[in-house]
């Protein structure tokens, strides 16, 4: 999948959702990461063909998605905040999808997502997590050149979130937006961080994990001793620059509960995209 943008911008009146985006990405799964209001959904709605840019252009596999005649079949999507005030049953969605020649994975996904347990409930009476699963069913059960998923695991319990992330990580041609660094790292092979509608960092997995920087989970409230440099703190998780041997010592002595190479959290912190919200979340 190739995703390309030139001076891409979308405005809502006088406010720009995204502006001046330039990128040329070749990846199977692209993760767009950023905090609330960073422009993720706006970017995804352009890449899904639902919105035309106010300036510049975007291309997915060489085609501007909003101008595609076959966009409803070639691009499948699921957007966040699934609240459907329509009096249909979940079963109606499943049957409609089954009747499409493009959607051959419906029954498998109904089982894998656990939708079978609420098939006869009305869409306007199910929980937000169940509605999210219905949303994902529509996006994932049909053949598509590109699948766009906005916060795919929001509203889901950790078990279902794991199932969904596992599914996504096995697909090709996926663009997801998330504010969870772990989710992005679990599924994507290219990453883009947005802040206030602009790209503050982008790169692949090699670039993401290239430095000797680690995420360290504390057992206590602080990290005593020497031999490391604390870059940022997200609650009980510290981003530190240190030798692996030194971290092994700290782990053996019980000062830290574990550590791993810092990926998006470090980039978040060093690009200034984190902030209070992230610190509170962790």
């Amino acid at each position: 999948m190739r995703v390309h943008a030139e001076n891409l911008g979308v405005n809502y009146g006088r406010v720009w959702g995204i502006r001046g985006l330039n990128f040329d990405v070749r990846a199977e799964r692209l993760a767009v990461v950023g905090h609330n209001g960073s422009g993720k959904t706006t970017l995804l709605s352009v890449l899904a063909g639902l919105r035309k840019p106010s300036e510049g252009k975007a291309e997915v596999d060489g085609v501007e998605p909003y101008d595609r005649k076959d966009k409803w079949i070639a691009v499948r999507y699921s957007f966040e905040k699934p609240q459907f005030s329509i009096p249909v049953k979940v079963r109606d969605i499943v049957e409609l999808l089954r009747s499409s020649s493009h959607c051959r994975k419906v029954d498998n996904l109904v089982d894998e997502l656990g939708i079978g347990s609420f098939l006869d409930q009305r869409l306007d009476g199910i929980s937000s997590g169940q509605a999210q699963l219905c949303n994902l069913l529509v996006a994932l059960s049909c053949d598509a050149e590109v699948t766009i998923l906005d916060e795919p695991t929001a509203h889901l319990d950790s078990y279902r979130a794991g199932v969904v992330d596992d599914m996504i990580s096995r697909r090709r041609g996926v663009i997801i937006a998330t504010h969870e660094p772990e989710e992005a790292e679990a599924v994507a092979d290219y990453f883009m961080i947005l802040k206030e509608g602009r790209i503050v960092w982008q790169g692949d997995r090699n670039e993401l994990f290239s430095e000797d920087v680690y995420e360290v989970t504390l057992t206590g409230s602080s990290l005593p001793g020497e031999g490391f440099e604390i870059i940022h703190r997200f609650g009980a998780v510290l981003i530190v620059k240190a030798d692996r041997e030194r971290l092994d010592e700290l782990f053996s002595s019980g000062v830290i509960a574990g550590f791993k190479r810092a990926g998006l959290r470090y980039v978040y912190a060093s690009s200034g995209s984190g902030g209070e919200e992230d610190e509170n979340e962790t």
Partner: peptide, 15 residues
């Protein structure tokens, strides 16, 4: 119906 629901239906009805 609201835009969000219509966007959902557009995908489901394929256009």
């Amino acid at each position: 119906r609201d835009s969000r629901t219509t966007a959902f239906e557009l995908s489901l009805f394929e256009g």
